[in-house]
Design a protein around this nucleic acid. Structure first.
Lengths: 156, 156
DNA sequence: TTAATATCGTTTCAAAGCTAACGATTTTGA
DNA sequence: TCAAAATCGTTAGCTTTGAAACGATATTAA
C-alpha cells in the first residue's frame, strides 16, 4: 500500500490514528473537566483550577516547598509565585523561608485556608464523581492504570 | 463501617477514590502533554497549544466559523478572537464575514498557514506517537473508547 | 580560601484566557 | 410592521501563565 494522506502527505500506514485519537480526546476531557469545575464549583470561591490544586496539596501536606508545588501542579515556578501571592492576599496561605537553606521557601496553609477547603472540597468531589460516573468502577480502575503508565514513561 | 477520613470528614465508603484517581491522573497527563508539545515542538514556531489546535482545524476544514473554533478547542470565544488576531498578524489566517449572516465570521487559512502546517504537523505527530507509545495498540483503542464515553456523557 | 557554578524564588514582560459589557445583526412575536 | 429578544464577534479589564533575566544563597573545585 502506498496510499498517501491528502493533507499530511504522510503514508497512511505510518499515520498513527490511534495515537492521535488518544491525545485529542485526552486533552478534550481534561479541558472540559477544568472548565466545568471552574464554572460550577470554584468560581464561587474565586479560585482557578491551579489555585485549587495548590490549596489541595497544602491541605494534605500542611506546608510544601514552592518547587514541589510547581512539579505537582505541572506549572512553572513563576506561576506558583504568582498564584501563591494571590492566595496570600486572600489570607489562605503564607510563605516562610527555610532557615537551613535560605534559597528555599515553604508555603503554609492558614486556618482560613483550611476552613475554605473543608467547605469547598466536598463540592469539588461531588463534581469529580459526576464527571467519571459514565465509567463503571472497573473502567475507572483500568483508565487510571493506563494513565499512570503514560505518566511513568513520560515522567510527567 | 463508620470510619471517617481525617481531612475531608467524609465517611470513607462514600469517598470515591477511583474517581479522584481518574480526574487527577487525567489532568496530569493532559498538562504534561501540552507542556511537552509546546516546549519541544511548538515553541520553535511561536505557537501555543491552542493556536496550533485552531490552525489544525483550519487545515482540515479550510475555513471555520469563530464559534466552532471555540467549541472545538474548548476555550471562550474571546480567546478565539485574541488568538486569531495573533495568527492574523503572523499572516497564517485571515477573517471573512459571512454575507448571508453578517454576524458570523469565518476564519480562513492562508497559503503561508498551510505551509507552516505542512512542516509542523509531521513533527507534532511524532511527539504524539512518542507520548502514547507506552500503550499497546489495544490499550490505545480502549483508552479512546473510555474517553469518548466521558465526552459523550458530559457533552464536552 | 575564593572564584566559578548551581540552585532557588521573584520580577519583568508578553501572550493566553475568562467574564462581562458592548455594538451590530438577525429573528421572533405581537 | 416594528419593537423585543436572541445571537454573534469584539473590546475592556482582569488573572493566569511561562521564558528569560535577575538577585540571593549554597555548593563545588581549584
Amino acid at each position: 500500500m502506498d496510499t498517501i494522506n491528502r493533507l499530511t502527505q504522510i503514508p497512511i500506514d505510518s499515520l498513527h490514528v490511534d495515537a492521535i485519537a488518544v491525545v485529542t480526546n485526552l486533552y478534550r476531557v481534561a479541558q472540559g473537566l477544568k472548565n466545568k469545575m471552574e464554572q460550577e464549583v470554584l468560581a464561587e470561591f474565586g479560585l482557578s483550577w491551579t489555585a485549587f490544586s495548590m490549596l489541595y496539596d497544602l491541605w494534605i501536606w500542611e506546608s510544601v516547598e514552592t518547587k514541589k508545588l510547581a512539579l505537582s501542579s505541572g506549572v512553572s515556578k513563576a506561576t506558583v509565585s504568582n498564584i501563591t501571592k494571590t492566595l496570600e492576599s486572600k489570607e489562605l496561605c503564607y510563605r516562610k523561608t527555610d532557615n537551613r537553606d535560605r534559597r528555599m521557601t515553604y508555603v503554609v496553609l492558614t486556618d482560613k485556608g483550611k476552613q475554605v477547603m473543608e467547605t469547598l472540597y466536598p463540592r469539588f468531589h461531588k463534581g469529580e464523581i459526576e464527571i467519571v460516573s459514565s465509567l463503571s468502577k472497573d473502567e475507572q480502575i483500568n483508565m487510571t492504570k493506563l494513565l499512570r503508565q503514560i505518566i511513568r514513561d513520560n515522567q510527567f
